[in-house]
Amino acid sequence: MKHLPNPLRRHLAALRALAVLTVLLGLIYPLAATGLAQVLFHDNANGSAVRAGGRDVGSSLIGQSFTDADGRPVRKYFQSRPSAAGDGYDPTSTSASNLGPEDVIDVPPAGGEKGRQSLLTQVCARSRAAGELEGVSGARPYCTPDGVGAVLKVFPNRAVSVNQPCPATPFVAAYQGVRVECAKQGEDYAAGRTVPVRGNAPTPPAVPADAVTASGSGLDPHISPAYADLQAPRVAKERGLPLDRVRALIEQHTTGRILGFMGEPSVNVLELNLALDEG
């Protein structure tokens, strides 16, 4: 090696260094960690599997959809949060919605292109659907009664409820003395001033926040105790169980804040549903 030019020697040393470190850090370390983890924490290391009737039904850490083949909620189960992972709770395609906090205007389908629902409309629609499912009001601030974002595009002498395509009835008749129209297909409203209208929905709304938002992972195994409470009467009714029994089960599957301050209280939906199934 003494005879090699300096740059070459340097790169050879670099190559050897990387090779040595790769063996150490890329093979020995993870394999040793795997071996020890498999011995010490076998369950955890293999994904905290949940078993029912002698078979794996999932992982206690990974949420699931409790919907039928058509995507409708199965009424006897507590429902998980909305999910943006694939078609919902797909661990091979994890994702969040990534929609912004001011994403309030829907893109209607046009010219063969698929439209896109704004985040606000998605929230409103979920709220309305959850309200209907649970038999409470799905009303929310900035939402129309028909479950889209209550957003106007205001022009000097007219206003358009931009998320309500004609022939829908706009959620307000007039805005600051100007008549509000429904959104005509194919018309470009970009030039208007965007005005979300809060409306008079109560705060907090009957449907809790986690029920109308997608989680970060798309695999969130939890719902808030509030959302569980909201669903309890329906599940109890469907299963013919006393409400108190259901509530007790919720209580059992609720994790409080660790040490009183870490995290938020949460209810593990899969485990709760499994407990219900197991009676």
Binding site: A96, E102, V123, G149, A209, D210, G263
Partner: peptide, 19 residues
């Protein structure tokens, strides 16, 4: 912001266990 106001909390993209 409009959506968090509609939701009641900035929970979009966040996990329940973390809050």
């Amino acid at each position: 912001a409009t959506v968090p106001q509609a939701v009641g909390a900035a929970m979009e993209g966040k996990e329940v266990r973390f809050g």
